[in-house]
């Protein structure tokens, strides 16, 4: 156990370092965007004087390193700063949106992860059969369509034609859980269709990859049933690659859902970020991007740790 604590501590330290580097890149990237908030707000009526006054007022006249240092100092104190566009606290602005994004991602994950694992395990069990081919065709098709296309198809059938679900997911802070889940179900289904294929195929491939191992042959020669061989002998050794793909997809569910959020007018973080980029509201963009980066880092770290915990060689050293 001691080793694992040490390893996790190392990974965390590395994660923080990566986060710091990412924040530098974001700051540089955002700075490289053409135009700024003042130009955006004043539009055609801008003059050199008004622009300068505006920049001075919101601190845009300072050099990039200085602005970055201010921002970093604030973050370390837990202060994300204020939005340049409307003067609201960013933490407040992001708070509810972040909750919404996590809720949608969580809902999609609860549906898609068990589904993908089950489909993958069954595909490995009945490999090269009709079921296997069928499930491959279906999941590959669903991943090949753009998300907004799937979203509109689902809206057309499940919402417009049959009227089962609302096409707008306008959830608010006080929406009760059941209603929230009901309203978020269509975007969650869309996301499920997008991510299931990866996870299912990786589950199938990782298991099949192991079926040529001598210990699988041994299990057959001990007279074990096919399903027991897959579940008890292959799956426990296949976790590492599966977990990694699952985690990548979870990260996608959190950071890659902008299009789906826009289609369903779902008030999530992606929508906020796109909006803020348009307005050149740099502190908000920076905060969103940092949160997304942190999500990736934390999830990947989780994948690493899970790969270790599921590997007896690392968990039980000699």
């Amino acid at each position: 156990m001691h080793n694992i604590v040490k390893l996790v501590a190392q990974r965390m330290a590395l994660g923080l370092l990566v986060l710091f580097i990412v924040s530098l890149i974001i700051a540089a990237g955002v700075d490289a965007l053409p135009g700024d908030l003042c130009q955006e707000m004043q539009g055609q009526s801008a003059t050199a004087e008004t622009l300068e006054a505006c920049r001075k007022e919101i601190g845009l006249d300072k050099a990039l390193p200085l602005r970055y240092a201010d921002w970093l100092g604030g973050i370390l104190k837990g202060d994300f700063g204020v939005s340049l566009a409307n003067g609201r606290q960013i933490s407040e602005l992001i708070g509810s949106r972040l909750g919404n994004t996590f809720f949608l991602a969580g809902l999609a994950a609860i549906i898609s992860v068990p589904l993908a694992l089950a489909l993958g395990i069954l595909a490995a069990l009945y490999r090269n059969g009709i079921y296997d081919r069928g499930v491959n065709v279906v999941t590959l098709s669903s991943i090949s369509f753009p998300e907004f296309f799937i979203a509109y198809i689902l809206i057309l059938w499940l919402s417009v034609n049959w009227g089962w679900f609302p096409s707008l997911s306008n959830v608010g802070g006080d929406t009760p859980l059941a209603e929230r889940a009901y309203k978020s179900l269509l975007p969650a289904l869309t996301l499920t269709l997008v991510v299931v294929a990866h996870m299912m195929r990786m589950t199938r491939a990782s298991i099949i990859n192991l079926l040529a191992s001598p210990y699988i042959e041994m299990a057959s020669l001990k007279g074990m049933t096919k399903s027991r061989i897959i579940l008890k002998h292959a799956l426990p050794n296949a976790w590492a690659p599966i977990v990694n793909v699952v985690v990548l997809n979870l990260a996608y569910l959190i950071v890659g859902v902008v299009v789906v959020e826009v289609v369903f007018v779902y008030p999530g973080l992606g929508e906020l970020m796109v909006d803020s980029v348009r307005k050149r509201d740099i502190p908000v963009v920076q905060a969103c991007a940092s949160i997304f980066a942190a999500t990736y880092i934390i999830l990947n770290m989780t994948a690493d740790i899970l790969s270790i915990v599921t590997n007896p060689r690392l968990l039980h050293p000699k």
Partner: peptide, 11 residues
């Protein structure tokens, strides 16, 4: 089996 190391399930 010939190779016990490979024929025992590592998990």
């Amino acid at each position: 089996a010939q190779s016990a190391a490979a024929s025992f399930n590592p998990a």
